[in-house]
Amino acid sequence: MARWRYVFVEALAGLRRNLMMSLAVVLSVTVSLTLLGASLLLSEQVDLATDDWTGKVEVSIFLCDDRTCPAITTQQRQKLQEDLEAQPVVAEVFYESKREAYDRFTRLFADQPTLIEAIDVSTLPASFRVKLENPQLFGVIKDQFSAYPGVEEIVDQRDVLNQFLRFTTLVRNGALIIALIQLLAAGVLIANTIRVAAFARREQTAIMKLVGASNWYVRLPFVLEGVIAGALGAALSWGLLYFTVPRVTRDLAREVELLPFIGLDQVIAIAPIMAAAGIGIAAVSSILALRRFLQV
């Protein structure tokens, strides 16, 4: 017990002795992990947006329901389905009734009750959801079926989605690259700090080695010093995401309808990854920094 206290006391004393340096380490870990966390969350967002519905459907043919045009008749619908199935560029056709559209919507936006309250079973139009042999051939479908009676609108889902995805992926990759560079810089900074700390305490360390303190025991205070700084940085950056991300996505969800957004759950889910990254980078760079310095 006493020996563990020693390790902690030494590590904290080391952090305090070189407060400016410790602060720099914590901040640099914070910056890099915030970026890392942000890029992880963007990936989550992309996955969420490409979920079963948006991901599989390429073309939606919305059917009239008396709102903007006279409701489609059963005959018209059957004719439309037969012609769609006969069209060679079409790979698959599903019919989605108003009820099914409503169910899917409530499933997708389960965490946004205000959105669900705003609609009922009659609000969303029924549609044919069409998968194409070649997604580029959207024009063929549009030309052929736009004029069909009972067809309200034909929408290329990929178009909407692609724009969004391309942008998010770009931002995510950018954030990821900067995060990794920052993380590397944080690692170098940690290594340097630990080396300075070890140098400042070289006499004590020399005595410890001479009286037979085990190698890990000599090193542990220094490694812990780095790890505490790393963990602190991880906690700070996670806290930052915890308070900002749900706010931002809530605002976005208000602007961009019909697209699910990530929330607190996803931020909580990445906590272990961020902690592991912060502690891991700190531990690895501390150990590397000490490898030569504290050799027996």
């Binding site: 080695k209 001479l210 009286v211 037979g212 303190a213 085990s214 190698n215 027996v296």
Partner: peptide, 13 residues
């Protein structure tokens, strides 16, 4: 090398 500390516990310097 991990046994060196044990040796040093038997030696005063």
């Amino acid at each position: 090398s991990w046994k060196v500390p044990l040796l040093r516990r038997e030696i005063g310097y």
